[in-house]
Amino acid sequence: MVNSAVFLLFLGFTQCHFWKIGGVALELPKHATKCLSEDIHAHSIVLGDYSVLFDEHIDELPTVSAKITSPYGNTLHDTKNVSHGQFAFTTTEGGHYVFCFWQEFNPRGVKLSVNMDLRTGVAAKDWDSIAKKEKIEGVELELRKLEFQVQAIHDNLIHLRNKEDKMREVSEGTNARVAWLGIMSLGVCMGASMVQVWNLKKFFRRKRLI
């Protein structure tokens, strides 16, 4: 019973993670760039849209600029002087993708925010098109969604295991370097002590104290 509850809890957590639908509001400073980093797997579909938010009523709409870069610094989306926009791309490498926004036009100096809605992985699939193309609906469609979700969970577990292996390799390498550094430090201390003892003996013999 406990194992079933733990599994359901884990399934619920992964469902929230892989069906990533939601908005993130970023408050933009006047003369600075605000960025958001998201860890995304390789070969994942990424869809999103963003829009400028402000409280005051003004005639001229403020605008922002947006830039999205990959973990290796490649520019995937670069738009300037817009009040809203959309982006879509498929990742080629896994890692942290950076979404940056900054103010471009704000003559009244009002307080600006950007609301970004980001969807990745399973949540980015167009299930209406899939249902029409494969002529499925109802329970069959829900089972197909669960199938994609289980595959996403499996891929995420493999990704986490690979990251764990890399972290373990780094940790073992660091421990080995620290151990060798300790041995070298001990050797240097012992050598310095022997030199000091030899110098003291030489000094005492010169003074004929021993």
Rank of each mutant, 00 (worst) to 15 (best):
L118Y: 06
N81W: 02
H96F: 13
F89E: 01
S129N: 12
H84K: 12
H154A: 13
R108P: 00
L76E: 02
A123P: 06
M167F: 14
G94F: 04
I153T: 12
G85H: 05
T69R: 08
T120S: 07
V64Y: 04
L76G: 07
Q103S: 10
K111W: 00
E137Y: 10
D155T: 06
K80E: 08
V114T: 04
L118F: 11
A66W: 02
N106Y: 02
Q149L: 14
H159S: 14
G73K: 07
D78H: 11
L146C: 15
S129Y: 13
N156A: 10
V110L: 03
F148V: 01
T75F: 03
K163M: 13
H154P: 00
S70Q: 04
M116G: 00
L141S: 10
K145Q: 05
K166L: 14
T69D: 03
A124T: 10
T79I: 09
D155E: 12
S129L: 14
L146Q: 12
H154N: 10
K133S: 13
L160D: 08
V110H: 02
I153Q: 03
I153R: 01
L76Q: 03
P107Y: 09
E93C: 04
F87N: 06
L118R: 06
N156V: 00
K133T: 15
K132L: 13
E142G: 00
A66F: 14
L146N: 12
I158W: 11
I130F: 03
P71A: 06
S70M: 09
R144T: 11
G73T: 11
W102T: 12
F148P: 00
V139C: 07
N162M: 08
H96Q: 14
F89Q: 03
R168G: 00
G94L: 06
E137F: 07
W127K: 08
K166G: 07
I158P: 00
K166N: 12
T90S: 15
D155S: 14
G121H: 08
A124K: 05
K132D: 14
N74Q: 15
D117P: 00
H154Y: 15
K67H: 02
S65N: 10
E164A: 15
V64S: 04
C100N: 03
G109K: 07
